[in-house]
Simulated scan of single mutants.
Amino acid sequence: MKDSHDFHEFPEDEYRARYERARGLMAEAGLDALLVSEEHNYRYFTGHLPPTKNRPTLVVLPLEGPPLILAATYGSAAARQMSWVTDILEYEVPLRAEYLCDALAQAGLDGKAIGTEAHDRFFGAAGMGISHGEYGRLAELMPRARFQDASELIWRLRMVKSHREQECLAKVCEITGRAYQRTFTEARSGMTESQVGRILISAMMDEGADLPSQGRPGPCAFLIVDASRPLGQLHAPTEKRLALGDLLHIDTGAIYNGYCADFSRLATVGPPSEEQQSQWLEVRRRMDQALGVVRAGNRLGDISVHWHGVGLDGVEPPFVGNHDELLMEPGMALALEEIIYSDGGETYHLEENVIVTESGYKLLTEVDSGLYLIAAGE
């Protein structure tokens, strides 16, 4: 990971290893290059966070030869400073197909098979740094080239985290967990949800986050669980005040070095009732049962609770329903979550983050998962 005097997020060998893995999959798929423009995919391969979406930055990853970055003049200096890639072409905004054509031609890819993210079935083409119109024009300008979808190939790479990525995920879960504990300790009945949200944001930043709440606008995704809210839905904090007997649910995560946490914890406002304790024990039992299935070689679909991947995106592949037949691999980062809806209109939700290992899993969310207690206000 980076130190305080280095703008690079990881050492160069981390990115070269990712590139080599990509080359192996490209060779299997019969591709001569990848054209990568989605913000997190680009960052994954280059270590550079593009400055703005309206000045997209792309990287060409040839099967043979060095990688090439295409950056707006405005952002090219940052690309040189932050990325390990040394071959950088500049363009004047807006990004037009002609610039892409020149970059691909310079890499010797005219008439070659080029993989893109145009048909990502999870996030769609909206995440691409290339507009639909310019992408279509690119195919017209390079009629001999063969453009085909490579989004699944990229996700196969990103699903399995390296040791350094796992360290980042462990760190961001630690930061988030300490922030949750501070929030539950400092919150009081009578406070508004918004006040509690500001405590959480401040705590995340104090504990070392680069950004709070997965970089989303607003304090966080969390709610007071009661019959006045639609069950199972997360709400931005409001001016509603915490009252004795409420359940305060927090489900979000900080960002550290680009990597997201995504897990939840629950607190009662005042001492918990027997019903609240009983429901929480049942949620915990179901989660423990689901975690018992997490092991390299087992099917993802055998996990008995909802699950998804976590990494540079707080919610990313693998996804339940889409990757049920996929076998778990060492290094996969998963968020597992279980929800119980009570007859009284309360929602009990527990979410944990883990890394799959050969023998089982490594729990990233080590912070106490019991019911927290929010004290009464004065």
Rank of each mutant, 00 (worst) to 15 (best):
G124W: 11
C168Q: 04
R96K: 15
A150V: 03
L153M: 11
Q166R: 15
E152D: 14
D120M: 10
K161P: 12
M142Y: 02
H132P: 11
G133D: 12
H119M: 11
D102R: 15
S162F: 10
I88A: 06
E167C: 03
G124K: 05
A113W: 09
S162D: 11
M159W: 00
D87R: 15
Q181M: 09
L169P: 04
H132M: 11
F122P: 01
Q166A: 13
V172F: 07
L109H: 06
E117Y: 09
F122A: 11
L109D: 01
G127A: 04
R144M: 05
T183E: 01
A118L: 08
R178Q: 15
E167I: 05
K161A: 15
I175W: 08
R146W: 00
T183H: 04
I88T: 06
M159T: 03
M128A: 10
T183Q: 02
G136W: 03
A170L: 07
E90D: 15
Y135P: 00
F123R: 10
Y135R: 02
I175A: 11
F122Q: 10
R144N: 02
G127Y: 01
G124T: 12
E152G: 10
E152C: 04
W155F: 13
L104T: 08
R96V: 10
A103Q: 01
S131V: 05
V160Y: 05
R156I: 00
A97E: 12
S162K: 04
F122V: 13
G111D: 12
A125C: 13
H132I: 08
F123Y: 14
A170Y: 02
V93P: 14
R158L: 06
D120A: 13
G177V: 06
T176P: 08
F123G: 01
I154C: 02
R146S: 05
C168M: 06
A126V: 15
R96L: 14
L100P: 03
A150I: 09
Q148S: 13
A105D: 09
F122W: 15
T116Y: 08
G111T: 08
D102S: 11
V172L: 07
E140L: 14
Q181Y: 00
A105C: 10
F122I: 13
R178G: 11
E165Q: 14
L138K: 01
L138G: 01
R156T: 12
S131D: 08
I175R: 10
A118V: 10
R146G: 00
V160C: 07
I130T: 02
P143Y: 08
G108C: 13
G136K: 04
L104R: 05
C168H: 00
C101N: 10
L169H: 04
C101I: 00
E134C: 01
S151M: 09
E174K: 13
G124A: 11
T183D: 05
Q106H: 12
Y99E: 11
